[in-house]
Design a protein around this nucleic acid. Structure first.
Lengths: 161, 161
DNA sequence: CGTAACCTTTGAGTTAAGTTTAAGGTCAAG
DNA sequence: CTTGACCTTAAACTTAACTCAAAGGTTACG
């Protein structure tokens, strides 16, 4: 199978497949006499594994460390470890999301609860003091990155290579 | 207030504050005769608003569009719209997270359910077919970025400016 | 033989949110 | 009058996961 065919099979771009090879993720590749890459059918599986793992939140770096052997011969213990860690990561993120959402919802309620007899500026100050109040009040709030991810704007320029 | 003092008050770095100004997020700044920036006390509030919004998942771009007027005089309707959208974003992400987590947990169970009388390679094939099976089986699976975020590896190089 | 559709490589560009560096002014204290 | 802490700018660097462009070789078809 040539790279173009593999790309069509997997829905990935040629450049992305080459990139994965360069990144050490796709080793099931050979060269024909003319220099063309040629792939065995399992390459489709490997690429699908990679994208599936990505969707589950694994970075390419993590995937590389888990994928290396020959599709069989996996490091059982390491793999399970990684999966468990990733589940824990997801749970942590879920917690953060829940908190952020609650804050936003509270903020919405607060803004809309404007008594209607006070002016906008006064309402703004009132809301503002609620939003920042809790934070400013506590001498030292718990540190931690926070920062949910603003991935609403994903690039994902879809265009075949 | 000089930039250093503001940085200390907010816990941000000098460079980050300058960056926010360059990005059009922090307009409450003046210059002394010597070129030094000087800030009014409200600058602390503005910066705290910015980081709070960031933690709620807003990108700097989104924040810029919501922040512009003079701390009061907010665009009520636009703001509420944005907040609602962000809540919806969070909910969508929560859904995706739930699905991914379920998949991972299922995968874990699958791996550990190895009958112990079959060899590792066979088990690997068995598990692999489960992981990819659903996907391969369906002619055309629902499209959509997926890609949870692998932000386990956050850079956040902590070093004062 | 031409040309279109493949394939190759290298190297640079993209995005977000900053940080780092280099080179240099300013200011307060001793 | 020098030292150290502070401030200034512009420009380059960082990370992840790719994409895009340029310049060129290969192959199948008519």
């Amino acid at each position: 199978m040539n790279i173009g065919a593999l790309a069509k099979r997997t829905g990935l771009t040629n450049s992305r497949i080459r990139f994965y090879e360069r990144a050490g993720l796709l080793q099931t590749v050979d060269r024909r006499a003319n220099g063309y890459r040629t792939y065995p059918p399992e390459a489709v599986l490997v690429l699908e594994l990679i994208t599936t793992a990505q969707q589950a939140g694994f970075s390419l770096d993590e995937i590389r460390k888990l994928l290396p052997p020959g599709l069989d011969r996996w490091d059982h213990a390491t793999l399970i470890e990684a999966l468990r860690r990733k589940v824990a990561d997801i749970e942590a993120l879920e917690t953060r999301l829940k908190r952020s959402k609650a804050q936003l919802v509270a903020l919405l309620a607060d803004i809309e609860a404007k008594p209607d007899d006070i002016d906008c500026a006064t309402n703004a100050r009132r809301v503002l003091s609620h939003v920042l109040g809790d934070k400013i009040g506590s001498e030292e709030m718990l540190i931690g990155d926070g920062g949910l991810l603003a991935k609403t704007t994903r690039r994902r320029t879809v265009r075949a290579g």
